[in-house]
């Protein structure tokens, strides 16, 4: 039986992601773990997270998981979700500037203040709700997911990678920002596949069958 480890480091509720993974791939063993051995033993790793980046990095460092995630990023399929995606960048401007895991070269930045839509209405921050995900490359994780499908987002910061080649998708709010990154065996999304109904479950199912090759 293949296995997936969901990293439990105290940042948010893992109920949804575990249930969604079980639903998407009933044949896979889903475990919530916070120790290095269990994470390194699993076939695949999901790195979720909600909240603030300072707390996230502190929790990872306290549990000794920063090195473990960097190791996973070199060896097996890894899916970063929301804050888990942001933590994979080099650094974030949240909380006055926080050094992150540097799996993807680039920064995490806040949406500009006073955004307006095309009708001149102020755009709300956080960016919350269902928005279109425009795929920029063919990737096993996009299989059977129609171009520009809507996924559920809730966030105020987003990733700005240094290398455009690792951008896997963009979303407009109101300008295009990177909402998915792909590099070797690592895939990361700003939206919540576990809350994005059918297309979200499809992405999770794709991840559960991904061998880590683009």
């Amino acid at each position: 039986m293949s296995s997936v480890a969901v990293i439990d480091y105290g940042m948010g509720n893992l109920h949804s992601i575990v249930k969604a993974l079980q639903h998407a791939a009933p044949e896979v063993d889903v475990v919530c773990v916070s120790d290095a051995d269990s994470i390194l033993r699993a076939d695949r790793v999901v790195f979720p997270g909600v909240g603030a980046i300072r707390d996230c990095m502190q929790a990872l460092n306290q549990l000794g998981l920063s090195d473990v995630i960097q190791q996973v990023a070199k060896s097996k399929p890894l899916l970063g979700i929301c804050l888990g995606m942001q933590a994979l960048l080099s650094d974030s401007e949240e909380n006055g500037g926080i050094k992150c895991l540097d799996v993807f070269s680039g920064h995490v930045v806040h949406f500009p203040e006073s955004l307006k839509d095309s009708d001149g209405n102020s755009l709300k921050i956080p960016h919350m709700g269902w928005n279109e995900v425009h795929q920029l490359q063919q990737h096993p994780l996009w299989e059977n997911i129609p171009q520009d499908s809507r996924f559920y987002f809730v966030h105020s910061y987003y990733a700005q990678p240094n290398d455009a080649a690792i951008m896997a998708a963009t979303t407009q709010y109101p300008d295009a920002f990177t909402c998915a990154l792909a590099q070797d065996n690592v895939f990361a999304v700003q939206f919540h596949p576990e809350k994005s109904q059918a297309v979200g479950l499809q992405l999770l199912e794709n991840f559960m069958h991904w061998d880590g090759q683009a």
Partner: peptide, 8 residues
Amino acid sequence: MSLAKRII
């Protein structure tokens, strides 16, 4: 096209 208005 961008963020959808939600029905709850």
